[in-house]
Simulated scan of single mutants.
Amino acid sequence: MFKIVTSIVHGAARQRHGCTIVIDLNEKPIFISGHSLEQPLDLEKHEYLELAKSLSKVDGALHLGADLKLHSFACLLDGHFIPGEDRARGARFNSALRFTAEHHNIIVIVVSSDDPVSIMIDGVALNTKWQWKPSLFCNEPVLLEKWVTISESS
């Protein structure tokens, strides 16, 4: 799965177009409105992977199953408003957040034509930058050496 997804992501980034990839980890892939394929394409075959890369240029998402097959393309991802949306990131990004908030066992990867790749699951962008801030309980990180010393004395 990793090789297939990274191939599609790198292809989109190289050609400077955005795309969305839905990775459906359900035993039976969910229905997503779009162009469903009667016979899903086996993306382990080079020619079908190349076709999937071309289809990533079409507006809408690619729908990949856990079986490493392309089940549909030009899929519309919808959902209700959720906290954490960022209108500045655009429709592709926010649609992916909404969709993953409402569907289980789904990972969505968004390749923006002008921003880094975003990965969403359960309505959260996993690549959100997080900064450590000191709290009342911990003003600095505790070194492993100190943890080991504490454990040994207990």
Score class of each variant (00 low, 15 high):
Asp122Trp: 01
Gln15Thr: 08
Met120Gly: 01
Thr6Glu: 14
Val108Glu: 01
Asn127Arg: 15
Tyr48Cys: 13
Val142Ile: 11
Arg98Val: 01
Ile23Gly: 03
His71Gln: 03
Leu62Ile: 07
Ala74Asp: 05
Ser112Asp: 14
His35Lys: 12
Lys57Ala: 15
Ser54Thr: 12
Pro141Gly: 12
Ala88Glu: 13
Lys133Tyr: 08
Asn105Ser: 12
Leu41Arg: 12
Ile32Cys: 04
Trp147His: 11
Arg98Gln: 00
Val148Asn: 07
Asp86Trp: 00
Glu85Trp: 04
Ala88Met: 08
Val142Lys: 06
Ser95Pro: 02
Thr128Arg: 15
Asp67Asn: 14
Thr100Lys: 02
Ala61Lys: 06
Val5Thr: 11
Asn26Asp: 07
His46Met: 13
Ser135Gly: 10
Cys138Ser: 05
Gly60Ala: 10
Gly34Val: 04
His80Tyr: 11
Leu143Gln: 08
His104Ile: 05
Lys45Pro: 06
Gln131Cys: 05
Asp42Pro: 06
Leu51Thr: 11
Ile21Arg: 01
Arg16Ile: 06
Thr20Tyr: 00
Trp147Tyr: 09
Asp122Gly: 07
Asp122Tyr: 02
Leu68Cys: 13
Ile23Pro: 02
Leu68Arg: 15
Trp132Thr: 06
His80Lys: 15
Ile121His: 12
Ser54His: 13
Ser135Asp: 03
Val110Ala: 06
Arg98Cys: 00
Thr6Asp: 14
Ser36Trp: 09
Cys138Trp: 03
Leu41Cys: 09
Leu136Ser: 05
Trp147Arg: 10
Glu27His: 10
Gln39Ser: 10
Leu49His: 11
Val148Tyr: 07
Asn94Tyr: 02
Gly18Asn: 11
Glu50Cys: 08
Glu140Thr: 08
Arg98Met: 00
Ala66Phe: 08
Ile8Leu: 14
Glu102His: 04
